[in-house]
C-alpha cells in the first residue's frame, strides 16, 4: 500500500512536469522556416516529387531519404525474431494442453479470408508509393492471413527452412539494391531506376522494389515468429 502511494506521488510529479513541458509546444501550429534554414519536413514535402518521383511523402522519407535507417530497423526486426526463437528453444513444453477442434465457422471462413488477406497485403505493399500503407503493414497483413490458417488448422505448418531462405533472400536483395546505387550513383540506396511519371504504378524508381522486399521480409519474419510462439503449444 505504501508503495502504491509512493508511485502515485511520483506519477503526479512526472505528469505535472510533462504537462508543463508540453504546454510550451503549440498544438497545430505552422512549422516555420527560420531565415535561410528550412524545416526538414517542409523540404521533404516540397521536393519529394521532383527528387524521388514518389507521391506519398512518408514513403519517400522511409525508403529513400532515410533508407539506411530503415535497413537498420529491418535488422532490429530480424534480431528480435531470431532472439524469440532462441529464447523459446530453451523451453520444451512438458504439460499436456487440451486440444480443441477449431469451429466450423473458423475453418470455412478461413478458406475464403486467407486469399483475400494475401491479396490485400500484396496490394498494400505494391502501392506503398501511391497510397497509405507500404511494406510494413502489408507484411503484417500477410502474416495475419497465416495466423488465421494457424488458428483454423492445427496441423498446418509453414516450412521453416523455406521461410528462412525467403527472408534471407529479401534482406540480401535490399542490400544489393543499396550497393548498386552506391556503384552507379555514389550514394548507398541511390535511386538508379529513374523517377517515371508521378502517380503511375511503375514510378518512383526503387521505392516500390524496396517496399516489395520489405513486405516479403516482414511477412515471412512475422509468420515465423507466430509459428515459433505456437509450436510449443502444440505438443501432444
Amino acid at each position: 500500500m505504501i508503495r502504491r502511494l509512493f508511485v502515485l506521488v511520483l506519477l503526479i510529479i512526472i505528469g505535472y512536469f510533462l504537462g508543463t513541458a508540453m504546454a510550451s509546444i503549440p498544438f497545430g501550429a505552422e512549422k516555420v522556416d527560420v531565415g535561410p534554414y528550412r524545416s526538414v519536413g517542409n523540404y521533404y514535402v516540397d521536393n519529394t516529387v521532383q527528387e524521388t518521383g514518389g507521391v506519398n511523402a512518408v514513403t519517400s522519407i522511409v525508403v529513400l531519404y532515410r533508407g539506411f535507417d530503415t535497413l537498420g530497423e529491418v535488422t532490429v526486426l530480424f534480431l528480435a525474431a531470431t532472439g524469440l526463437a532462441a529464447i523459446l528453444a530453451l523451453t520444451r513444453e512438458r504439460r499436456k494442453l487440451k486440444k480443441e477442434k477449431p469451429s466450423l465457422i473458423m475453418r470455412v471462413g478461413t478458406d475464403y479470408l486467407f486469399p483475400a488477406a494475401i491479396v490485400l497485403g500484396s496490394y498494400v505493399f505494391l502501392h506503398g508509393h501511391l497510397t497509405p500503407g507500404g511494406g510494413f503493414p502489408g507484411g503484417v497483413i500477410i502474416a495475419s492471413g497465416f495466423l488465421m490458417l494457424f488458428l483454423a488448422q492445427w496441423r498446418y505448418k509453414v516450412d521453416e527452412l523455406g521461410l528462412k531462405i525467403i527472408e534471407s533472400l529479401a534482406g540480401m536483395t535490399y542490400v544489393t539494391i543499396g550497393l548498386i546505387g552506391l556503384f552507379k550513383l555514389g550514394t548507398f540506396l541511390g535511386n538508379f531506376l529513374g523517377k517515371g511519371t508521378p502517380g503511375a504504378l511503375l514510378s518512383a524508381g526503387i521505392i516500390p522494389v524496396i517496399y516489395i522486399v520489405i513486405g516479403i521480409k516482414v511477412g515471412s519474419e512475422m509468420t515465423g515468429l507466430l509459428q515459433n510462439l505456437r509450436e510449443t503449444t502444440e505438443n501432444e
Binding site: N56, L97, G133, P137, V140, S144, R230, T233
Partner: peptide, 26 residues
C-alpha cells in the same frame, strides 16, 4: 497520418493481440 493509422491497426490491434492471446494460452 493514414500511413501510421494503417500500421497501428494492422499491428497494434491485430498482431499484438494475437501474440498476447497465444501467451495467455501457454
Amino acid at each position: 497520418a493514414p500511413d501510421v493509422a494503417i500500421t497501428q491497426a494492422a499491428i497494434g490491434a491485430g498482431l499484438t493481440t494475437a501474440i498476447f492471446v497465444v501467451v495467455l494460452r501457454k
